[in-house]
């Protein structure tokens, strides 16, 4: 089963929409509730990252019997130092974004905690792809 959702950079009022849609699908598929919880928390973090940092992007979802594969592909500034971005509390978010309650520097670490495999590819000036796999 594959789904794709587009994500608009900078539009926080829509942030979370795609994650909620995926959550509904996982509930319909009778995926274990704890698994759904973890996947959705990671997915929401990743979705907000695209909204907060990128110009636009998309969420690709692939669900089969034993795993949930999620990818967030964006066109944006890219991440210059991925290792640094993985540190808790590190954030490059603008003051405006922080004012909205985002940008605490917990995004990527929180994603890592909640999925089984996390792969980040990024090209500065072009964009970032975050891939997450959760085994069911």
């Amino acid at each position: 089963m594959q789904f794709e959702y587009s994500i608009e950079g900078g539009n926080f009022s829509r942030a979370g929409y795609a994650s909620s849609e995926v959550k509904k699908k996982l509930k319909q598929l009778n995926v274990d509730l704890q698994v759904i919880k973890r996947v959705v928390v990671a997915l929401y973090e990743a979705e907000v990252n695209v909204v907060a940092h990128a110009y636009n992007g998309r969420m690709e979802v692939e669900i089969d019997k034993d795993k949930i594969k999620l990818a967030l592909v964006d066109s944006g500034p890219g991440i210059p130092d991925i290792d640094k971005a993985m540190e808790e509390g590190y954030s490059t978010a603008t003051p405006e974004v922080r004012e909205m309650g985002f940008g605490a520097g917990m995004g990527l670490p929180n994603i890592k905690k909640n999925v089984d495999v996390l792969t980040i590819n990024s090209v500065v000036g072009k964009g970032t792809t975050v891939q997450m796999i959760t085994y069911i």
Partner: peptide, 23 residues
């Protein structure tokens, strides 16, 4: 107790098939 009304089927592979048809 959780009593989810959302699931298309108890069995996930069946649910996946049903979801494809829904789409």
């Amino acid at each position: 107790e959780p009593r989810s009304m959302m699931k298309l089927d108890e069995d996930m592979s069946e649910a996946l098939k049903k979801m494809k048809r829904v789409e």
